[in-house]
Design a protein around this nucleic acid. Structure first.
Lengths: 374, 374
DNA sequence: GCCATAAGTAAACGCTGTTGATTAACTGGG
DNA sequence: CCCAGTTAATCAACAGCGTTTACTTATGGC
């Protein structure tokens, strides 16, 4: 079921509890193996509070004790770890011509994968029936059905993340206004979250690679070019879930016409470069557009994914990295790191699963880069 | 004093209290006149909690009761209002050649203004002495010194908002590494917040115009072109307080060289247009760059300020509005509203005062557009 | 062995918002 | 005119959060 329309901002005790539990779980996730004292230091909570919170997490099976670490003259620290098998999530990448369904564990690692040779070019209801079959199929790999956190669905935008309703998917009138979230929840009887493919990929990167920074952009280069923006540890979607339209930024006033109606969009220029068999030129253009993004958002980490990137991953990555850093006035001060997506092949499907997992860790842990004021 | 280096994310009761107090105060601010029932509905807190919180705010003098509103068959609602005179803040706009100091009330409305004909081209310490004199001068307008919330200082970047230290201000080597926040706090004996001029302007807009949406960009067109980004009701600064470098986005691959070393930056193109006496062309270019920003951040509200804008405000505004909306694929769905800054003349100075006021309302009230997930 | 040191826990506590009952202040019908 | 009905706001008792203080557990060093 899609998330409720509005969530009030007033805080009460249950919310404090949930917030702190999620925060501690997130610190355990990122720490790999971490002790209670470290949790106390990093969270700002007292040791006693950490004890209680960890006890709850252990009782829920999410966290396990994992040995001791050498003493420095006192009682040695007890290490805590996430149990990846404690929970599972299903991710659905609903694309134009086909659909990929994956089952992942708590750390967004792929467990099972299933392919459905039918996508959004087909009838919505019929397609959803087949997708639901595939979801049930991958779920047979979980011993305990109660360990399913939920189902995430990622598809091309535009759509409304809060309601799970699609909005004028280009060239697919049947899907316009289709209540994807509600229909899927009906068929599956499980919580469903709907989001843009690029946002899913970005969340997937955050959860599957514990060292991913709190501010980064995931650039997906496939048929189009889109960005998933993670700012302060959270996906930034904008009001209409329409943020991240990276490919339609104009970088050449006198450039060629684009399918969107404008001239000189990044996407149009890249297409031209690829058509003439020049992928390095395309990567170079993406690098220039990335510099624009870095200037605007002060982001220092870029993750690349998508078929066009994968066609020549190393080369593409290098070209983007050198281009973007060359365009910054002080590369020493604000060097941009460029990397590749964690799950290269099914990056969006695993990301969709991460959509469902995210609420368990739903918090912006540190203030690093997330510093804001009213 | 600059804010502490790190604030942990763990939540405890005092934080809940502060959070909810700030939330309620923010709702009162935005509501203009609002009843306790409405506060309960909008905050999600119970009526009883609102009673307690409002009682505290009234005791602090921040909120006052202001009459009743017609009944709908029961006891009429008691209206609550912000008392603008309850607190004051000082804003300092430290610019290259001169400095503006203002005193504002709780709603970021200008009370007193003072001009210092000396800025960052002069010696840091001597300049700060003169600025401190001006601050003390405007403070004589407050009867009760304890009503001063703090002092905000806005200046051209780059700088580190968290520490209040400047970083390589272009062409002003004396100020490189200058601990502006600490030095000012020393001289004034009051809390000091330092931020980029554009960020200050954006906060000022939020506080002085209660109907400002939670997602918007403040575009300042002066010697350069910068943006202050407010996302989810809070200023987005990025990790190095360097977000919002709007003027150095490349929009013309083959454009003229820019002082930053690249080609085809918005700023370089605008300068060329202005040099040839074509301000409408400059506004048009800004409109194109704004469309890029809208595509990336799904923002539907733009506020314009700065000398170049004010030179022909209506014309500039119109040109930006028509250009940006023409570049969007679905103008009906995502129409962008373009407006002018609230305090046209001293927009950055009043914004600097708002920097100090912001923590009183420090919260993202609604989920409108601020919807995020880990 | 014994002490210093550090990690972690037990018990009592303060304070938050919540719950359920109660009072305050109005409208409208007879 | 008065009383039922309705809505706003409050009073009093309460549950549950993290905190504080005191204590236990487990190691290293002498």
């Amino acid at each position: 079921m899609p998330s409720p329309a509005r969530r009030a901002a007033g805080a009460n005790l249950p919310q404090v509890r949930d917030h702190n539990s999620a925060l501690v779980l997130d610190l355990v996730r990122r720490g790999g193996a971490i002790s209670r004292v470290e949790l106390a230091a990093q969270s700002g909570l007292t040791a006693q509070a950490i004890t209680k919170i960890v006890n709850r997490l252990v009782a829920d099976g999410l966290v396990t004790e994992a040995g001791r670490i050498g003493s420095t003259g006192g009682k040695p620290r007890t290490l805590l770890r996430l149990d990846p098998t404690a929970r599972y999530a299903v991710g659905v990448h609903l694309d134009r011509d086909d659909t990929t369904v994956v089952l992942t564990d708590l750390t967004a690692q792929k467990v099972t994968r299933r392919h459905v040779p039918q996508g959004m070019t087909a009838d919505p209801s019929a397609t959803l029936d087949r997708v639901a079959d595939a979801v049930r199929a991958v779920l047979t790999d979980i011993a305990d059905a109660s360990r399913l956190v939920g189902v995430g669905i990622a598809c091309p935008g535009p759509l409304d993340h809060t309601t799970g309703v699609l909005h004028r998917v280009t060239g697919l009138p049947d899907w316009d206004g289709f209540p994807l979230g509600a229909e899927a929840a009906d068929r599956l009887g499980a919580p469903v979250t709907v989001d843009k493919d690029t946002n899913a990929a970005a969340i997937g990167q955050t959860l599957s690679s514990p060292d991913t920074p709190v501010n980064f952009a995931y650039l997906y280069h496939g048929q189009g070019i889109g960005a998933g923006l993670v700012l302060g540890g959270r996906v930034y979607r904008g009001r209409r879930t329409n943020a991240g339209e990276f490919g339609h930024q104009v970088i050449d006033l006198n450039g060629p016409p684009c399918r969107c109606g404008n001239r000189g969009c990044l996407e149009a220029l890249c297409r031209a470069a690829l058509d003439t068999g020049n992928p390095v030129r395309a990567a170079h253009l993406v690098g220039i557009a990335t510099a624009n993004l870095v200037h605007l958002l002060d982001i220092d980490h870029i993750v690349l994914g998508g078929p066009v990137v994968l066609a020549a991953a190393e080369q593409y990555m290098q070209e983007v990295a050198t281009t973007v850093n060359a365009l910054l006035p002080e590369p020493d001060w604000q060097r941009v790191i460029v990397g590749l997506a964690a799950d290269r092949a099914d990056t969006i499907a695993t990301g969709a699963a991460a959509l469902a997992l995210a609420p368990l860790f739903n918090t912006s842990t540190s203030d690093d880069g997330a510093d804001r004021a009213a």
